[in-house]
Design a protein around this nucleic acid. Structure first.
Lengths: 134, 134
DNA sequence: CGGGATCCTGCCAGATACTG
DNA sequence: CAGTATCTGGCAGGATCCCG
């Protein structure tokens, strides 16, 4: 596999870390995976679990993960339509990763939020003094 | 902390997983962290390790991680200038996560690439038949 | 050497409306 | 119910030039 010059649309990746980011780094993917870890979910069920995600974005991210066979999409041919999403075998292998991410976030969220606020205050003070100089 | 309606620019997050993505989900952040895991790096050293990243993007992502105190930035007041980046204590806590990501990528990259190629071929075939119908 | 400042562009995400 | 289709604006990210 040649690096840097993919011969078609399917990319080559210079580093495994980059590749993993490409697979689960989508804005909502890991959150979707998290919700699928506790069981099969229907489309609107996922919408209710993630109200901030628009329908369109949810669909797109689900499609990408379906292509990567991270998740499985089962369509029931009935009226009204019914579609169930679940973790595919490859998706199961991501469970430890998602779990680690969740634990890290829970443990450090408050701290980082404080860091960000501090940096924000600093920037404002800086803007103030540069105003006073003029 | 109110959800959904942050009272200033510093966001609140509905879920720890989402938050973690926000911290390390930047396009290059986890790759930068990976390179800092093996030791302190200078700016141009990082550029050489990641030629695909533009200077601007490298700077921006480093700044964000500095604000979050994931990494530490040490400036030497000398000519020519010298800046060293290293993992801050909070960044150290991310090492297991990055390692897991790297291992997952290494183990499954080839498989997923194949899945993507297959899906691509499928889409092309589909486009072909829909052409033939007209 | 290690950036900052600017300008520019594409594509991504949101909103809305429609459908099998 | 579980999606597509279309338009649209914003901003992520590239290219380029400048600077201490």
């Amino acid at each position: 596999m040649q690096l840097g010059i993919p011969h078609d649309e399917v990319q080559a990746f210079a580093c495994p870390v980059t590749f993993t980011v490409d697979v689960i780094g989508g804005k909502w993917k890991s959150l979707i995976l998290f919700h699928l870890m506790s069981g099969t979910r229907r489309f609107n069920e996922l919408r209710r679990l993630m109200p901030e995600v628009t329908q369109r974005m949810l669909t797109l991210q689900l499609r990408e993960m379906e292509v990567d066979q991270i998740i499985h999409r089962k369509v029931y041919l009935e009226v009204p339509p019914k579609v169930e999403y679940s973790l595919a075998p490859l998706g199961q292998t991501l469970v430890p990763l998602i779990t680690t991410m969740r634990e890290w976030g829970a443990a450090h969220e408050a701290t980082v939020i404080e860091y960000r606020k501090a940096a924000q205050v600093e920037r404002q003070a800086e803007a103030q003094t540069s105003l006073e100089r003029n």
